[in-house]
Design a protein around this nucleic acid. Structure first.
Length: 920
RNA sequence: GGGCGAUUAGCUCAGGGGUAGAGCGCCACGUUGACAUCGUGGAGGUCGGUGGUUCGAAACCACCAUCGCCCACCA
């Protein structure tokens, strides 16, 4: 092995090897285990959230694969209708062209072209992260077979009456010119005004005042509403108002919807442009006056002077005109919710159009029950509340989009406006007996992207065909995703899976947090705080990073600020940490149910961990070159580390089961560094490097080094696949493992014969001995290299036995020159002290040590011990504690008190000796 | 207006009815035959506040404060 750990080259080499060997495909006859990747946007790039999510999935997949499960990680990409269409349109605009200039067919061809160019990029990034997805099964939502599944689902739902076409208000995005589902509309708090308008009564006798945040909609008013019980307005009900500027006579109606407390208690009703008003209009059979065109400009139904004006310009004119007529009662500054399209950012208008809808309640009911009954489990569980909340209040799903990129709706129209839904035009003609000469025109619209992603768990496996894959891998085991798409995606997969597969699409939904920057800010292009995971893996220089962060900003004026912040945080760019370090960092941060601040300090530390593992492996390899299979004896040290490893394995399995990858990472990290490297490797040195050790004991140490390291590599592999493979290629065979890759080795299991309490107790004694000496050394400023003589005061038979048995370890690791027990009655010399149970370790001072310094040191320890003792005594003197606490807690407290008491006596005794020494 | 989450060392975070934890950072020492991307020792916290339950609360409960997120048609 090279002396230095350099991840870049080995990681790419190893990934190529795995892929070429086909290790990622499901294999064996084990219990199936399947994860569906949340398909990323085909033209997108990998961001930190993806990298985090992919790390979690890959860890689970590799863990289960090593457990012998038949494991499928289904990969693929989403066509992401609106997002992709916008990207390509922007490209066209930059070229001075446009979507409409190209026409539908050419535009769609252009999108496919762009998909082919950029679509591979995210896959390269996935590979760089080490994702063990089955590339041979990669799917795209617009593949022929997946598209066929979409059509099939649409037709079946339609034939069952669960998809219908209806004219009603939708959220209309006047920039993208498409309808949006409720989920695609974000409500943002914005400063605005509340205009109080005065409408004269038609008979000239008085007026009413209505309030609105959108005065331009008054052109479409068809009534004024008051609450039926509002005594102020009871006499107005049934009378008419003369709508200013328009001149229309509109009725005053009574409706419970009106809140008498708000504003004047009178509401203008605009059924065509407000969801509530639409309902009121239906209840009172009011006419619907649509006054917008699809750009949200005023149309020809409005008075001529406003026609063609954009809604905001129209607003200004109308307010001015009403003001001139003295019909503005007052204008209030008012903060209110403004609905905006999640992609375009445009203010969305309620707009009356024909759209396709899914009648969702019949699908929602079993989907709710599936989570209630526990057939699907959310991890952490509190997300099920969020799910229920939305599912219980679910509205019909508008699935048609006025876009060109997506699945064309399988509906055809004849010249009379009849609608024929079928799998193809031919089927439509066949089904409805339409002659070939009857002209049919397919619906221009495409389906909401989530309609096809909702089928992902079964469309990727071959549905509607009854494939072997479907039988094997549906339902999937767990869905790993962020909370932001519980409604968009998770809920819809559950509904559609239950509907078409008659079973849930997955058993568990693991919801992870959002990756934020070091200040807790959401990472976003416009904030200029985005980190590209690949930059952390392979490194990036400052100039490239700056260019990335400032290119194509929507608000160019932020550039200097972003540049300054970036220069400050990364004065030298970002170094190459390698995929393993980044993955381990993600795992260590993957605590459930909370967002993650990505802290560069952590990745630094975990890169160091890689280096530690690398070098410990070099040590093991160097010291196990000449192994023979002669008789072998395991020392207490060997048995101790195996026992500790066993505990670690247990904890790793438990935490995988709970999706607590942070605790998995921590358990392995602590064992590897704190126990294996810091102690076992050090303790093995005196055994392997001194000639007087027996060959059997040396063999025991060598085989333990190999066994433990080889096991750690397998344990760690799901989190750090590359470095573990690289090292395993050498360590595995030497440890007796056979196979071409660590990926397909069995995952470590606990072994009862490794469990050894006696060895753990014995080594605790050794470590405490060495720690005591080190403490004296550190606090008394004695050079770490200087060998020290140690006297045992008050040693029992067992202490003497252990001291003798482990003398080589104490000598080498503790830098102890000699150990001798004081004889009975022998006067101890002036010494620095450490406590080990009932025994005192004495390091004779002999001028090496400053007596005053030792006194201070001991006094400090005494103070701490006395405080602890006092607390324990207080407890034990408290009658209610002794009477009420469980016996074992009381016993434990008594033991503690006794220990402190003994320690205190030892310390007092030692302090007295220092005094007598100083006096003499 | 409803719901959820967070508040523990300078920073990022685990933990959890009985002894306050890790990593990073900080201080001191160190060329020990794997590793300075390291080793050894050390300093550092009345676990957001108030009340309650309990023999015992940082942990459980209630309320409050601050921060964050989600959902909701008050014009």
């Amino acid at each position: 092995m090279d002396k230095a750990y350099i991840p870049l080259q080995l990681e790419t080499r190893i990934y190529r090897y795995w892929e070429e060997q086909g290790f990622f495909a499901p294999a064996g006859a084990g219990d199936p285990y399947c994860i569906m990747i949340p398909p990323p946007n085909v033209t997108g790039t990998l961001h930190m959230g993806h990298a985090f999510q992919d790390t979690i999935m890959d860890a689970l997949i590799r863990y289960q694969r090593m457990q012998g499960r038949q494991t499928l990680w289904q990969t693929g990409m989403d066509h992401a209708g609106i997002a992709t269409q916008m990207v390509v349109e922007r490209q066209l605009n930059a070229e001075g062209s446009s979507r409409s200039a190209l026409g539908r067919e050419e535009f769609v061809e252009r999108v496919w072209q762009w998909k082919r160019e950029s679509g591979g990029w995210i896959n390269q990034q996935l590979r760089r992260m080490g994702a063990s997805v089955d590339w041979s099964r990669e799917r795209f939502t617009m593949d022929d077979d997946l598209s066929a599944a979409v059509t099939e689902v649409f037709v079946r739902l339609h034939d069952e009456g669960l998809i219908y076409r209806g004219k009603r208000l939708v959220n209309w995005d006047p920039v993208l010119h498409t309808a949006l589902s409720d989920l695609e509309v974000l409500q943002s708090d914005e400063a605005g005004h509340l205009w109080h308008l005065r409408y004269p009564l038609a008979d000239g006798d008085g007026s009413v005042v209505v309030a609105t945040t959108r005065p331009e909609t008054m052109l479409g008013d068809s009534a004024v509403a008051v609450h039926p019980d509002d005594s102020r307005y009871r006499q107005l009900i049934g009378r008419e108002v003369l709508l200013p500027l328009v001149g229309r006579r509109i009725p005053v109606v009574a409706d419970e919807y009106v809140d008498p407390e708000f504003g004047s208690g009178c509401v203008k009703i605009t059924p065509a442009h407000d969801f509530n008003d639409y309902e009121v209009g239906l209840r009172h059979a009011l006419p619907v006056y649509n006054i917008f065109d699809d750009n949200a400009a005023i149309n020809d139904l409005a008075p001529e002077k406003y026609r063609g004006l954009d809604r905001l310009l129209a607003r200004e004119r109308i307010v001015a005109d009403l003001d001139a007529l003295e019909l503005i009662e007052r204008i209030e500054v008012y903060e209110h919710k403004v609905p905006r399209g999640d992609r375009s950012g445009a203010i969305v208008e309620p707009y009356l159009t024909d759209q396709w809808y899914v009648d969702i309640k019949p699908l929602a009911k079993p989907a709710i029950e599936a989570v209630e009954s526990g057939r699907i489990r959310f991890v952490p569980d509190n997300w099920s509340n969020t799910y229920f909340e939305w599912m219980h209040n679910i509205q019909d799903w508008c699935i048609s989009r006025q876009l060109w990129w997506g699945h064309r709706i399988p509906a055809w129209y004849d010249d009379d406006g009849h609608i024929y839904v079928a799998r193809s035009e031919a089927e439509a003609r066949d089904k409805h007996g339409l002659a070939p000469h009857v002209p049919l025109r397919q619906d221009d619209d495409v389906l909401d992207t989530w309609f096809s992603s909702g089928l992902w768990p079964f469309s990727t496996l071959g549905w509607p065909n009854r494939t072997l894959e479907l039988a094997t891998f549906y339902p999937g085991s767990v869905l790993v995703t962020g909370f932001d798409i519980i409604f968009f995606w998770v809920a819809r997969m559950i509904m559609l899976g239950l509907k078409f597969m008659d079973d849930v699409p997955f058993r568990e939904v693991y919801i992870h947090g959002l990756i934020r920057d070091q200040d807790g800010q959401k990472m976003s292009k416009s904030k200029g705080n985005v980190l590209d995971p690949i930059d952390l893996v392979d490194g990036v220089d400052l100039e490239t990073l700056l260019a990335k962060r400032t290119a194509g900003l929507m608000q160019p004026h932020l550039e200097p600020k972003i540049e300054a912040a970036t220069r400050q945080q990364f004065p030298h760019g970002i170094e190459a940490y390698g995929a393993d370090a980044l993955r381990f960092t993600f795992a260590a941060l993957a605590t459930t149910g909370r967002d993650i601040r990505f802290d560069l300090g952590r990745i630094d530390g975990y890169r160091n961990f890689c280096n530690k593992l690398w070098n410990a492996s070099r040590y093991v390899l160097m010291n196990t070159e000449n192994c023979d299979d002669g008789a072998l004896e395991l020392s207490p040290t060997d048995r101790w580390i195996r026992s500790r490893l066993n505990r670690t394995i247990k904890s790793v399995h438990e935490n995988f089961a709970r999706y607590r990858l942070d605790l998995v990472a921590q358990a392995i990290y602590d064992f590897t560094w704190r126990e294996f490297c810091d102690w076992y490797v050090e303790l093995s040195k005196p055994v392997l490097q001194s000639p007087e050790m027996s060959a059997a004991v040396q063999r025991g140490a060598r085989s333990t080094l190999l066994d433990v390291l080889e096991t750690v590599l397998r344990l760690l592999h799901p989190l750090m696949p590359f470095i573990t493979e690289e090292i395993w290629q050498q360590v595995g065979p030497r440890a007796g493992a056979k196979g071409a890759t660590i990926m397909l080795q069995p995952y470590p299991q606990t072994q009862v014969e490794w469990h050894d309490n006696a060895a753990e107790t014995e080594l605790a004694w050794v470590m405490q001995f060495i720690l005591g000496i080190r403490q004296i050394r550190g606090e008394m400023d004695i050079s770490p290299g200087k060998p020290l003589p140690v006297l045992l005061h008050g040693a029992g038979a067992l202490d003497e036995e252990l001291a003798l048995r482990h003398a080589p370890l104490l000598a080498r690791v503790g830098r102890v020159e000699s150990v001798r027990a004081l004889a009975d009655g022998e006067q101890p010399p002036a010494a620095a002290t450490a406590l080990l149970g009932d025994m005192r370790l004495l390091v004779p001072l002999k001028g090496v040590i400053d007596v005053e310094a030792e006194r201070t040191r001991l006094a400090k320890r005494r103070e701490k011990t006395a405080a602890e003792l006092q607390r324990a005594r207080n407890k034990l003197q408290n009658g209610s504690f002794v009477n009420n606490a469980p016996a074992e807690v009381v016993k434990q407290e008594q033991t503690r008190a006794a220990d402190f008491e003994r320690a205190l006596l030892q310390l007092d005794d030692q302090l007295a000796q220092l005094d007598s020494l100083a006096a003499s």
